[in-house]
Amino acid sequence: MNPLIELNDVLYRYPLTRKSALRHIQFKVTSGMVMGIIGVNGSGKTTLCNVIRSFIPNFYQGDLQGTVTLKGKPLNQYSETELSQLVGYIFQNPFTQISGVKDTVAEEIGYGLENLGVSSKKIQKRVAKMIDLLNLSDIKDKNPFDLSGGQKQMVAIAAILAINPEIFIFDEPTSQLDPAGTTKIFKIIQQLKSQGKTVILVEHKLDLMMQYIDQLLVLDEQGQQIAWGKPEEILASFTENQTIALPTATRVYQRMAAQHLIPIATNKVPVTQDEIVQTIQNFQETR
């Protein structure tokens, strides 16, 4: 079976710049996988999302090298319409995702479907379902520009969910949200996963992210891929520094090892709360 998404030695330079924003990006994502991308601000996470959705090179010029294929077919052989149905992209900044041409939240949620030529009856049904799913009924008649940052983020997500694509790119979907809203988004990601959707997730909230991802891509501050694999395995070779942040579970584990409370593992470390709780319980029993 072809991998759903495949990047092969991808390098990209923005126009009028000398430094590459991305270099040596190489990974394969299979259908149904949840993939996380981490790296400091400016390491190319959003740029990489733009490549996968082909906003680079379709809307941004510059120098793109290497190959990107979806379902075995190079990205440049897809039409923009095909891509918008195949890949749903929730922008980092909800303030820029809202179309600005619709007067109500409900219309905004249906705007993508409208552009794809879906019948208005179907749109209404689909929009009603999204409003229900994300508890947006209180704001459905409001102007999207009158919403708070967190509410805008929810509306942007609803608009993409309405299109029901195969691949979802979430670029820091919870940056404007409170803990309740954040939990809601991660529940949606969990649901998408159980429906067999493929998810690419950029997120700084590592403690939460680690509970949901299968594979992790790490970018350094130069936009270079420095690790790709199962998070519990690749994070075993890192300590927190200028390049990489670690989840709380891994930090606790490393501190415990540094203080000789537990032996240092080199091939696998706890990355989630459940895993570090297990480690501490084992440690408590040996006391």
């Binding site: 790296g39 400091v40 601000n41 980092q92 940052g149 820091e172 404007q176 700084h204 200028q242 942040a245």
Partner: peptide, 9 residues
């Protein structure tokens, strides 16, 4: 909300 979307650095 200065922490929104910020990395560890």
């Amino acid at each position: 909300e200065p922490t929104a979307g910020q990395d560890h650095l």
